[in-house]
Amino acid sequence: MKPAPFNYHAPSTTEEAVGLLAELGSQGRILAGGQSLFQLMNFRVVKPENLIDINPVSELDYIRVDDGTLAIGARTRQSALERSTEAARHSPLIVEAVKNVAHPSVRNRGTVGGSVAYADPASELPAVVLTSGGEVVLTGADGQRTLSAGDFFRGPYTNACSPDELLTEVRLPRWPDGTGHAFLEFQRKHGSYALVGTAVLVHLDGESIDRVAISLCGVDQTPVRASRAEDLVRGNVPSDGLFEEAAAEATSDLHPLPDVKGSAAYRLKLARVYVRRALELAVSRAKGERP
């Protein structure tokens, strides 16, 4: 299981990386953490002719808050995000989620940008970006553009980057103080791919929920936002019945991709349970009942 040969490019700046992308076009493939790409290459499922390694692009390694937005450079290691106090203050949701990504040694290499750009429909970080109302910054030879998460994820392993664009930043807006979060996922064994995951943010205005976001992964072609379930919850006082209703609504129109890990029907059942549990957890955190 050795990768097919390739030409290796190691740009040290974003500009160089983007220049290489422009030059190589569809022959070039970005190498970020490589924790998914090298798997595919070792199996020879993919055989890129050119790898553009952005690991040396240290300017894309940052976690900072700009104007109330958490900005994470694409080359930031997942383990750095996991340990970032800045990120934990600003978006405990993404910190909770990233701990579910594979194993620590994988997160020591895996990057935030790579995970988002890979657009694995079962992956954790895309669901979090979607829930948070986040954006991605794409940089091309002609400049930058910013896309909402909803516009970025186009299908399984498919995103809205054009061949000469590099995802350079992930941006998460800050939710108000007192927001409760929950990321829960179902793995058959520790560290294995999730069958289903749920990312929830909830804010309470007094007794009732005034803001809510619910996303799921592993249940459709892309991570999905459960907007109708959010509508159902918003403005209401949390209760077991409400969560159950919301969970049913959130899973009423999904089309999971079945595979050997789990059938579509089973994923839907899990999704319903996990939406309910995540809502419960997020609300209890919003109320300050749980850490």
């Binding site: 490589g34 924790q35 090298f38 798997q39 070792n42 620590p104 040694s105 994988v106 020591n108 290499r109």
Partner: peptide
């Protein structure tokens, strides 16, 4: 830090 040395060139 630990890495999988099959997934690093």
């Amino acid at each position: 830090v630990s890495v999988r040395s099959c997934l690093v060139l």
